[in-house]
Amino acid sequence: MDRTRRERWTRYRFRSVWDLDAPAARVYAALERPEEYPRWWPQIRGDGATGPGDGRSSSGALIRSALPFTLCVTAAELLRDPARGVLEVALHGDLDGWARWTVRPRVGPGGRGGPRTRALYEQEVEVRRPLMRWLALPGRPAFRLNHAVMMRAGRRGLAAHLGAGPQAV
């Protein structure tokens, strides 16, 4: 397979929607603290690599879901905008690209019920880990499923952390 074709198979674009029964400000506050993700997101483990980058905060994480390998990723903050509910980071390491959370309040059915929030997660990355690049074509369905499993667990974990139940989307 030529290089251009292989690179196409090593690029991923993900989108996940988490509907949560919690106020948008609480959801945003939890998502803006990636160093605390390991407390509620089982697949994310901190590696202790945190510190200032170019005047913005950065953090490192080890990520492992259902497949038998661990990804090492560093996230450097690109945007933190509480007024718009947006958090964006640049990702480097075994994955290279960006990830963004957009947090918005939602009105419940008929305008009743407690506060509800929709958190949209978007990610565009290229896989840099050699084994995953080599397995790009045959492993793609498993890699996408692995990501979906991880995101479902993250939604459940955040809902429990916030004391709210996740809504299926």
Rank of each mutant, 00 (worst) to 15 (best):
Y28N: 04
V127K: 02
A66H: 06
R144D: 12
A142F: 15
V169G: 13
R140H: 09
L67Q: 00
Y37G: 04
L20I: 11
T74V: 15
R152I: 06
R39T: 14
H161I: 02
R39Q: 12
P34E: 01
A90T: 04
R5H: 01
A148K: 14
Y37W: 14
A24E: 12
L162C: 13
G97Y: 07
L137F: 12
A164D: 06
L120S: 04
R6D: 12
F143G: 03
T4Q: 07
V17I: 10
G163F: 14
A25L: 08
G108C: 07
R133V: 15
E7C: 06
G157P: 09
G53D: 15
W9C: 05
R152F: 07
G55H: 07
L87K: 01
L79F: 00
W41S: 09
L91Q: 10
R33I: 04
W98Y: 11
Q123I: 02
R118C: 10
G53Q: 10
R128P: 02
H147W: 09
E36I: 05
C72V: 15
S57W: 09
V17T: 07
A164R: 05
T50A: 15
G93A: 03
L95F: 09
V17S: 13
R84Q: 11
S57I: 01
A29T: 12
A160G: 10
G165C: 04
L20P: 04
E32H: 10
M1L: 10
P68Q: 05
Y12N: 04
S59A: 14
D19I: 10
A22P: 06
S65W: 11
T50C: 01
G60T: 14
R129C: 01
A164C: 12
D2A: 11
Y121C: 00
L78A: 07
T50P: 00
P38I: 08
P68V: 13
T74C: 04
G165I: 01
R104K: 11
P68E: 03
R128Q: 12
E36V: 11
G53K: 00
A99H: 08
P82W: 10
L137A: 15
R118H: 04
G139Y: 05
A29I: 03
A164N: 03
A142T: 02
V103W: 07
T10F: 02
A142Q: 12
P115F: 03
P38S: 02
V149K: 10
A90N: 03
A75C: 03
Q43K: 08
D94V: 07
H92N: 12
G97I: 02
R84G: 06
E36S: 13
R39E: 15
L162S: 11
P42Q: 07
S58Y: 04
L62A: 15
T10E: 13
G111I: 08
E88R: 15
L79M: 08
H147R: 06
N146L: 06
L31H: 02
V17G: 02
F14D: 15
R118G: 03
G46T: 13
R155E: 15
G48A: 01
A160Y: 01
M1P: 11
L78W: 00
G48I: 11
S16W: 14
A90P: 01
L120G: 00
A49K: 11
A153D: 07
A29K: 00
L79T: 13
E88N: 02
E124Q: 09
R84Y: 00
V103K: 05
L95Y: 02
L120Y: 00
E126W: 02
P105G: 09
